[in-house]
Structures are given as C-alpha cells and as structure tokens.
Amino acid sequence: MSGGAGFFDIPSDLQHSYAGLIGIHMQEAMIPVGIGLAVALPLGQLCVRFRWLYPPVLWVTTVLYAIPSLTFFVFLIDYTGATRTTVMIPLTVYSLVVLVPAIVDGVRSVPQDTLSAATAMGLGPVQRYLQVQLPLAVPAIIAGLRVATASSISLVSVGALIGNQGALGNLLQDAILYHRSNLALNSVVTIAVLAVLTDIVLVLLRMALTPWLPRSGKAAGRAARATAVEPSTEAALLEDAAS
C-alpha cells in the first residue's frame, strides 16, 4: 500500500489526525449528552413532583424527537452558522428527550414502602431524593444514557453534510472526494466501535453504582433491549418492568 492510502491515513484536508478526529467526535457527541443529563435531572424531578406536568412534557419530547437531525441542523445554520455548535444543539435536545422519561420512570418506580421507610428514618425530601430515589433510579437513568450516547455518537456523522462538521463523518465526504472506500469503512467501523465501547463503559458504571443488583439476568437484558427503542416506547417498556 503506497503513501497515504492506508486505513488510518487521514487525508490532509481534514486537518486532523485519526486520534484528533476521534477526540472531536467524542466531544461533539458527549457534551450534548452531559448537558442533556444536567437539564434532565431537575426537569425529571419536577415531573415526578407535579404529576400533571409529565404528559405534556412527554408529548413535547416525542414531537421533538421526530424532527430529523438534518432538518434540525439546517434550521440552526440560520442562527449559529455551519459550526460544531449547530451539530451539538440538536444532539442535546435528543439526549434530553431520551433522558427525561427514563429519569421520571426510574424515580417513580421506587416503591412507596421504601420511601416511607426513608421518611421514617428521618430523611428530609432532598436527602431522600439524593440518597434513596436517585440511586435506585440509576439503572433506568443509565439505560436512558445508553440510548442517548449511542444515537449521539452515530448522529454526529450527519454533521458532515453541513460544512464538514461531522468529525469522523467527514471521512465519508473524503471517501467520495478521493474515491477511497477505505475511508468510509474506517468511519463506519470507528463510529460503531466508539458507540459499543461507550456502551460497555456505561454498563460497567451501572454495575459499580448498583452493587446490590444481580450482575446479569433479566433486568439487564431488558434494559439492553430497550436501548434499541425510542424514548416513549422505552418509557412504556420500563413501566412494564416496574409494574
């Protein structure tokens, strides 16, 4: 294989090494998930507190989730230009949309007896939320995070269509530009590997955070299968699991 045609030889016009592209890709994918989580936690708690709030929130999130990423990107070009910000804003919204139902259902699924016991032990509402409800909701929240990160990592590549803001997705444009199918393969495989690795990290995180749960088995399998589904469906599944 000559010169620059190797699997990991990134064309110079992308101005980044393979490692650099991975860095940008993860940055573009994970910052939105982080912001989404930061917003979803208080919002989810509000929905738990005020039950009437949840159905409208669920409706809005379902509709927002239906807006295609490409549509979202091109709408935002008007405000934020063809930049990384434009790619990250929709991904933040999608993360939020996935995480809110996951958090609400997770927190709600904590049995009333458990809450009563906590109150009886003298925990105030804030302590009870932080020490009892949130830890018990971790499996559901992580299940939501898995959906959010996987779709975020894969959707960043669509940013390539709006002025080379797709990190590893830009390899796809270059594959076409230079007739180098290797670059397309590299892009797809790397993105898939990143998504799977992140997924594994999240599963490990859940095991570490919930040592009281069985390591594998029905609940984990159900959560894993739920990762293939969009939020409201997943909410229904989790509701089933909780009942």
């Binding site: 101005q15 393979y18 490692a19 650099g20 991975i22 860095g23 940008i24 993860m26 940055q27 573009e28 994970m30 910052i31 934020t80 230009g81 063809a82 930049t83 990384r84 910000t85 434009t86 803001q165 590997v193 990143l194 690795l197 992140t198 990290v201």
Partner: peptide
Amino acid sequence: LLAATTAAALLAGCSDSSSSSDTPN
C-alpha cells in the same frame, strides 16, 4: 487512544477547538 477515549480525548478536543480553523459562530 480508544482506551483513553472517553476522558482524555474529550479534553484534547476541547483545547484543540479554541485554536483550530473552525469559524466561531
């Protein structure tokens, strides 16, 4: 890099974006 992806790459990407060629918004 894959091993260090989640943490280190994020930071590398951050510092890199401030000086890179991308247009600010």
